[in-house]
């Protein structure tokens, strides 16, 4: 029961705090630009405003465009409930299986891309196609890295993997560390921040699939996209850097775990913010070159894993 409450709290807080993460990123971006910039709560205001607006869809679009935003945000809530955050174990172990996680990430991407094509807009369609290609390019690295971690730990459950790492009983540690590096880079690309925001590239595609959304649909995406980023970051720390999280349900343990989790998230947020403000967008036709590099790291991890070191 207590686990279920934790899961529920995680899901709700994720929805409530995701706009804060994107708000902080906006604020930081403004500071780097030497602009005054909006406050860190600006995204809440934007979302409140959008929720009051009408939900407009183009008349050629089908149901796909309408169900995409709730589906996207729903998948992220489910992932958020199962992901070990303050705790080392998963509140709902069934939801923290890496096979399920990967599919739960692929499903909203598929619908996101589809909605872009469905909207009938030339730019949104192009953005949708890009989103699918990005998925094809980066998912193999993501999966291979997780696969190596799973073999090294002997389990496919994110929480159990974290426990193994915390206890120091991973079988091939070098392979595991390399897989961690590959996973981190793959996660960053998956987050869709610059220089990899190809599907929504503002100057090229005018926000891609997002440009055909409005009102509550757009508000949901404004929450769901940073949620995805937080979920990915959480998964990374849950598997590869679980240190400090609560190993049991004691109040003290949970309190410390929560603080440690927040610190880790802030550190990751700062790193991503710095990266995204110091780069130009990758030229679309060269994205494949860079994802191959990530894949090579993942393969390297796999080779070490086979060798057992």
């Amino acid at each position: 029961m207590a686990e279920f409450i934790i899961a529920l709290v995680q899901g709700i807080l994720l929805v409530l705090l995701a706009p804060l993460a994107s708000g902080i990123a906006r604020w930081f971006r403004a500071k780097v630009h030497t602009r005054k910039g909006p406050s860190i709560f600006q995204d809440y205001r934007d979302i409140a405003k959008l929720l009051k607006r009408q939900d407009v869809h183009s008349n050629v679009s089908s149901r796909v465009s309408r169900i995409m935003p709730p589906l996207y945000i729903g998948c992220m809530i489910v992932l958020g409930m199962g992901m070990p955050m303050a705790t080392r174990f998963s509140p709902i172990p069934f939801l923290a299986d890496i096979i399920l996680v990967i599919y739960m990430l692929a499903l909203p991407r598929f619908f996101f891309a589809l909605s872009g094509i469905d909207s009938g807009d030339a730019y949104a369609g192009t953005g949708g196609v890009r989103e699918l290609i990005m998925g094809t390019l980066i998912e193999p690295s993501l999966m291979l890295a997780l696969f190596v971690a799973a073999i090294a730990c002997g389990t496919t459950n994110v929480g159990t993997m974290g426990q193994m790492v915390g206890a120091g009983t991973v079988q091939s540690p070098i392979a595991f560390v390399i897989a961690g590096i590959a996973f981190a880079v793959a996660c960053y690309i998956e987050m869709g921040k610059l220089p990899y925001d190809e599907a929504e590239a503002e100057q090229e595609l005018q926000e891609g699939p997002l440009q055909e959304l409005s009102g509550p649909s757009l508000a949901m995406m404004h929450i769901a996209v940073p949620m995805k980023q937080v979920v990915l970051a959480s998964m990374f720390v849950a598997i590869f850097l679980p240190f400090g999280s609560a190993v049991d349900l004691s109040v003290a343990g949970l309190a410390v775990g929560t603080v440690v989790y927040l610190v880790k998230m802030v550190v990751i947020l700062v790193v991503t913010m710095v990266i995204e403000n110091c780069v130009s967008r990758v030229r679309w036709k060269f994205v494949g070159h860079q994802t191959w590099f990530v894949f090579a790291i993942a393969v390297c991890a796999f080779a070490f894993c086979v060798l057992g070191i």
Binding site: L194, N277, R281
Partner: peptide
């Protein structure tokens, strides 16, 4: 040019 390549920091500076 910075802006069009997605490097808004350069643009603002």
């Amino acid at each position: 040019v910075c802006h069009y390549t997605g490097f808004d920091t350069g643009f603002q500076h």
